[in-house]
Each structure stands twice: as C-alpha cells, then as structure tokens.
C-alpha cells in the first residue's frame, strides 16, 4: 500500500510539473513571440505566422490539451533557436550532463559522508573545525566563480572549454582520456560545492545520534570506540543523511547549470543557458519539465531505497 501511495504521489508530482511548465510560460505579462523575436527584424505578419506555428493563437485550454497530449507522446514542441524538436535537442545533450553530474555526485557523496562522519565523531577537534570551516566557506562560494578561479589558476594545465578536442585520435582510449582530461575542472568545481553541503548534512545527522542511549548500550557491551561508531552510530545516521542528499538533488542541478556555462560543457546546463539567453520558451519549458521530472523520479527512487534499507520505514 505504501509503495502504491508513493507511486501515486510521484505521478501527481509529475502532473504538477507538467501543469507548472505550461502555465509558467503562458500566464506571463507580454507576448512570448514579441519577446522571443526581440532584437531581430520581424514584421507583424511574421509574428502572426509564428503564433500560428506555435499554436499561440488558440484558446488556452486547447493549447494545454495539445501540449499535454504531446508531452505524453514525448513531443515537447519545436525549439525556436534550433528549429528542431525540443525532445531531440534535449536527448542529444543528456549524455555529457549525466557524465558530469554522475561523476561529481558519486565523488561528492563518498567524500562528503566520510568527512562528515569523521568530523562529527571527533567533535570540536582540529579536524572537525577545519572540515566544518572549509565546508561553510565552500557553501558560500558561488559555483561559477569557483569554476572561473580554477580555470584561471590552472592556466593551460587542463582544457577549460568543451568536452573533447577536435584533433584527438578517433580510437576509444584516446577519446576517453581526452574526455577525462576535459572533465577534471568542471567536476572539481561541482564536487567542491556539492560536497560541502553533504559534509554538513552528514555531520549534523551523526551529531544527532551521538547521545543516543543505544550507543551507551554498545559501549557497555565492551565494544571498541570505532566499532560503536561503525556498527551502531553510522548505520543510524547515514540513512536520514542519504535521504537529505537526494532531497537536495536540485542543488546539483543548479550547480550543473552554472558549471556547464562556465566550462562550455555541452550538456543540458549549457543548453539551459542558451535557451534563456534566446529566450527560447519552448526549449526552456522542455528543460524545466525534464529536469523537474528527473528530480521527482530521483526522489521516488530515494524514497523506495530508504524503505528497503531502513527497517523502520515500511514499504510493502
């Protein structure tokens, strides 16, 4: 029943994402066509044609029905700047983003949780103060600025634009090495900022558990300090921390947008930037629906995972 409830909740959320995506770009002051064509020489006739082409001259309900049924088929309209279906454009940029976000999140989670556990266990030690201080500072650092600083500081050590060089040999190993080389700076930027958040989350989660009576029980049994931590404190603290990590997945998305913009990483983040500078409303709308939908799905996964891992939560 619980699982069905979760699935239902996620379905409602996805529906809300779709509705939000539609109205956010419709119920706005001004004419979308006017603002999209701003700065380009257009006549009233051309604008009217665009309106018809995008269906903007229809009643709102009809537009929504058209949009919604399209969405179900995977049709998100046509990009104004690319003159191609939004879905195709997004699909083609998915890979680089998955690579960047996946690598960075993995590193950030492992590093963040480990540092957080160590800091909390030796609360107020030099290590704790240093870790917390650095994390708080990194949390205050704007991602894009950090990226630009790293770029400036490393000079020519690492490539700072794009994902691969045009003159790399076509074989797999050279290509992979080249992408890896390009990946260093963007992923470092993303890890630094995201990891800081995870350290703080994990640290406070473990600190909450530090005075739990069952740890006294474990000590009384004669367990060594590190076993008390490993077997009893951490398993209890890690589960809520992981949930929080997933809940703040939006943070990673935000980080990816600015990081990709700074490093011209050809993923969804850079596409976002291109779409908003247009502005290309259909592309923006598609990106919003896709990212928000992805976050909703991630959350559902986290929920289910939490239910499987944590015996206190029942998923039947």
């Amino acid at each position: 029943m619980r699982l069905a409830g979760r699935l239902g909740g996620a379905a409602v959320s996805l529906l809300m994402v779709a509705v939000l995506g539609f109205f956010l770009f419709r119920v706005v002051p001004g004419d979308p066509v006017v603002s999209m064509t701003r700065g380009r020489p257009t006549t009233a006739a051309m604008q009217a044609e665009l309106r018809t082409q995008f269906g903007l001259d229809r009643p709102l309900v009809e537009q929504f029905w058209h949009y919604f049924t399209g969405l179900l088929r995977g049709d998100m309209g046509t990009s104004f700047t690319f003159r191609r279906p939004v879905a195709d454009v997004i699909l083609e940029r998915l890979g680089p983003t998955l690579l960047l976000v996946g690598t960075s999140t993995l590193i950030a989670v492992v590093l963040g949780l480990w540092l957080g556990v160590r800091a909390a266990w030796r609360r107020d030690s030099g290590f704790d103060r240093a870790t917390t201080g650095v994390s708080l500072t990194l949390w205050a650092v704007p991602t894009f600025w950090l990226g630009m600083l790293l770029m400036m500081a490393t000079g020519d050590l690492f490539p700072s634009r794009g994902m691969r060089d045009t003159d790399t040999a076509p074989d797999f190993v050279s290509q992979a090495l080249d992408v890896g080389h390009h990946l260093v700076l963007p992923s470092l930027t993303l890890v630094a900022v995201v990891c800081a958040e995870y350290v703080l989350v994990m640290r406070s989660s473990l600190l909450e558990e530090m005075h739990a009576p069952y740890l006294t029980t474990a000590r009384a049994k004669g367990l060594r300090d590190d076993l008390v931590r490993r077997r009893h404190a951490v398993p209890n603290a890690v589960l809520p921390a992981i949930t929080l990590v997933f809940l703040r997945f939006g943070l990673v998305v935000a980080g990816a947008i600015t990081t990709e913009t700074v490093f011209s990483w050809p993923g969804l983040g850079l596409l976002f930037y291109d779409a908003l500078t247009g502005p290309d409303y259909f592309l923006l709308q598609g990106l919003l629906v896709v990212t928000a939908g992805a976050v909703v799905v991630m959350n559902l996964l986290a929920d289910v995972l939490h239910g499987v891992l944590d015996p206190r939560v029942k998923v039947v």
């Binding site: 069952y214 004669g222 398993p235 209890n236």
Partner: peptide, 25 residues
Amino acid sequence: RLRAVRWASASIVFQGAMHSLNPVQ
C-alpha cells in the same frame, strides 16, 4: 581490560529499552 570486563563481569539492563536498543539492527 575494561572492555573485557564490561558485560562479561557485569551487565546492565538499561532504562527505556525503546531507545537503548539499536533501531536498525
């Protein structure tokens, strides 16, 4: 020595078993 003595020589039934047992084990 203390760890060896704990629980083997003397053990404790704690107040409030609710919180004195590890909830995820």
